[in-house]
């Protein structure tokens, strides 16, 4: 591969890895901090993607809008709508065993898919939305624009990472982990467990919406296929489990490494003879499924395990425990 081609392959890789990193950080807030099982990541991703796309795209007859609003407004709106969706889901089943939340979140994701495919007036159905702008459009042309977008994505990753870290160390985050690890004890000391959980789920969902928006802006085009639950929900779960749930650095490392495996296997399988190449995506799915089982059984704490922030008098002990 020529160096320029390699460079732009790398740029594309890092943009997607960044978007996945945000999804992973978001899931880490829900699962790693709060112990909440979200099986409908793709749904919140889709809400964010469509919100931002419709608000920022050029006007079109085929779908609602677009309103040509600034990209930043689109992204913020994406966070709000996805957060609201998360609020509705969590409100219903936050009191119940986490399996119910899983069922409800996967349900909402499936229904959103139905809406996206069926409501042509809103989303242009399977034909999708075109002419979605990127931030700083016109500043750079052609492939160079990807580099600019790469910087934009990773600035947002950095912001999300810092916010998540602050949350983790804050009194709020500590309470949340107490709720996750021992719900009864947290209740006993008078914490409103349900409202803490609700907040966690909403924050996570909003961040997933941001990731959705970024992907719509990156591709400049959005169709229902972009929100395929296999690629969004499953892959993100594997990333977080492999990276280390509860650890924000782990979430990013997990996103980068699993996305690297995914992209590299694509290069390999694309070179196979045609009759194998069509089936190669199933082999990759199978591998991801097996990777998840492996991580669950042998590697539950991930590449970078969770490490509770040391309390002042506790620091030395913390060091010896590594």
């Amino acid at each position: 591969m020529d160096p320029v081609g390699l460079l732009f392959f790398l740029v594309g890789f890092l943009i997607m890895a960044g978007i996945y990193a945000i999804l992973c950080l978001a899931l880490n807030v829900q699962w790693g901090y709060g112990g909440l099982f979200n099986a409908g990541i793709a749904g919140f991703f889709a809400v964010g993607a469509y919100t931002s796309a419709l608000l920022t795209a050029a006007p079109a007859q085929t779908h609602l809008g677009g309103y040509e609003l600034p990209v930043l407004v689109g992204i913020i709106a994406a966070a709000v709508t996805a957060g609201l969706t998360g609020w509705a889901v969590a409100k219903i089943c936050i009191r119940l065993k986490s399996d119910y939340l899983a069922m409800a979140s996967i349900g909402i994701a499936e229904i959103l898919r139905m809406v996206i495919v069926n409501e042509d007036w809103l989303t242009n159905g399977s034909l999708g939305i075109t002419n979605i702008p990127r931030p700083f459009d016109g500043l750079l042309q052609g492939r160079e624009a990807d580099i600019l977008f790469l910087a934009f994505v990773w600035v947002i990753v950095a912001i999300v990472y810092l916010v998540c870290n602050r949350l983790y160390d804050s009194p709020w985050g500590r309470t949340l982990r107490a709720v996750r690890d021992n719900e009864d004890a947290a209740r006993a000391v008078g914490k409103d467990v349900d409202s803490f959980r609700l907040q966690t789920f909403v924050i996570g969902a909003a961040l997933m919406g941001v990731a959705g928006a970024l992907s719509a802006h990156y591709f400049r085009f959005l169709s229902p296929e972009a929100t395929e639950p296999l690629l969004i929900t499953f892959l993100v779960w594997v990333m977080l489990m492999a990276g280390g749930s509860g650890n924000n650095k782990g979430a990013i490392v997990g996103a980068l490494s699993v996305w690297a495996i995914w992209s590299l296997t694509e290069i390999v399988t694309n070179r196979l003879p045609a009759e194998f190449a069509t089936r190669s995506s199933y082999i990759r799915m199978l591998l991801i499924g097996l990777l998840l089982q492996f991580v669950l059984q042998k590697y539950r704490s991930g590449l970078l395990p969770e490490r509770s922030p040391g309390i002042a008098f506790d620091k030395d002990k913390d060091k010896t425990h590594g």
Binding site: F37, F234, W237, M241, G289, R300
Partner: peptide
């Protein structure tokens, strides 16, 4: 909940 996650992965394995 870990088994729930595992069953998620199994669904994927079966389908692929």
């Amino acid at each position: 909940i870990y088994t729930v996650i595992a069953s998620f992965g199994v669904a994927l394995i079966f389908r692929s």
